[in-house]
């Protein structure tokens, strides 16, 4: 039981890390540009598809990953330049509509290019297999690699935000937008940078997850909504909040699905518990979000409006 719990905790953390990678860029875009991007999930999906394609073409996981990252970065740059920068001063509603349209276009484009059938990506030799964890328990190396890669990215982001000039502007922007706007010309370059970086991180998450999940056209949708939950729980604009929110959501979701029914069995009869568990588990993160918001309407690390 304790072992199973540990296992699920790790799975939850791994899922949370992925959510963080997708959420990091999105929360900055929300916080600094006050911009709603419904097309962000598609970039995650695109990362996975590009990974599948490049890994197959080049025959190398690593080369595929590199190419996938570079391509999502370019896609981010192009999208910002073509569409998003025209929408920054428009009302939220227009942003919702435009990025919704973009989501339709991109996900349909992916279907045209790669078809609707799920694709698979081979695990790299180096990271296959599993290692002993505690007692008889083993854990796949690749999942540990995801956690490590995610934590390294988080550390890199922390360094970028805390220690560099661009990061200083970012922090200023997230807490006081007019001030950054007053800095003038720098701002459009900063926006472009944030956007492209966010796109790349989402693509990175998609590429990372491709060997463990099947790559399919619906994968962007489900992650996007969870990412919103993460951002809202953490507080819009806060990368720290996104990190905390992502781990919380990842763990609550994963552990809740497995342990919800088990715990419910302690208080009700098994058949009812199984049914109730199935119904409640997927709703758990949304309940969590509602609870956090009714306690703190601006999220855990959000600034008061």
């Amino acid at each position: 039981m304790a072992n199973l719990f540990l296992l699920q905790l790790l799975n939850g953390a791994q899922f949370g890390i992925l959510l963080f990678l997708v959420a990091a860029g999105l929360t900055l875009v929300f916080g600094i540009m006050d911009f709603i991007n419904l097309a962000h999930g598609v970039l995650y999906m695109l990362g996975a598809y590009l990974m599948a394609m490049f890994a197959l073409e080049t025959g190398s996981f690593w080369l595929g990953l590199l190419l996938a990252l570079a391509t999502t970065l370019v896609v981010g740059l192009v999208l910002e330049w073509l569409v998003f920068r025209r929408l920054y001063d428009r009302p939220h509603l227009d942003q919702v509509l435009a990025t919704f349209a973009l989501m339709l276009i991109l996900s349909e484009g992916v279907k045209i290019l790669w078809g609707s059938a799920p694709l698979n990506v081979a695990m790299p030799e180096l990271l296959s297999g599993s290692i002993p964890l505690a007692g008889p328990l083993r854990y796949p190396v690749y999942r540990i690699a995801i956690i490590v890669a995610g934590l390294a990215t988080a550390a890199g982001l922390w360094w970028l935000i805390a220690r560099t000039r661009a990061g200083m502007l970012l922090r200023a922007g997230a807490s006081n937008r007019p001030m950054v706007a007053a800095l003038g010309t720098d701002i459009s370059r900063l926006f472009l940078l944030v956007f492209a970086l966010g796109a790349m991180l989402a693509g990175f998450a998609g590429a990372l997850v491709s060997p463990v999940l099947s790559v399919d056209p619906g994968m962007g949708d489900s992650i996007l909504i969870l990412t919103f939950v993460v951002i809202v729980i953490g507080g819009v604009g806060s990368v720290k909040g996104a990190f905390a929110g992502a781990l919380l959501v990842g763990i609550v979701d994963t552990v809740g699905r497995i342990f919800g029914p088990i715990w419910l069995k302690l208080v009700m009869d098994p058949a009812a518990a199984t049914q109730a568990g199935r119904v409640l588990a997927p709703m758990l993160v949304y309940l969590l979000m509602a609870a956090v918001l009714s306690w703190r309407p601006n999220g855990l690390f959000g600034r008061p409006s």
Partner: peptide, 14 residues
């Protein structure tokens, strides 16, 4: 109880 982006997202969550 929420406004703006938060309202959009929380209704989405519900």
């Amino acid at each position: 109880r929420t406004r703006g982006i938060y309202f959009i997202m929380i209704t989405l969550a519900f």
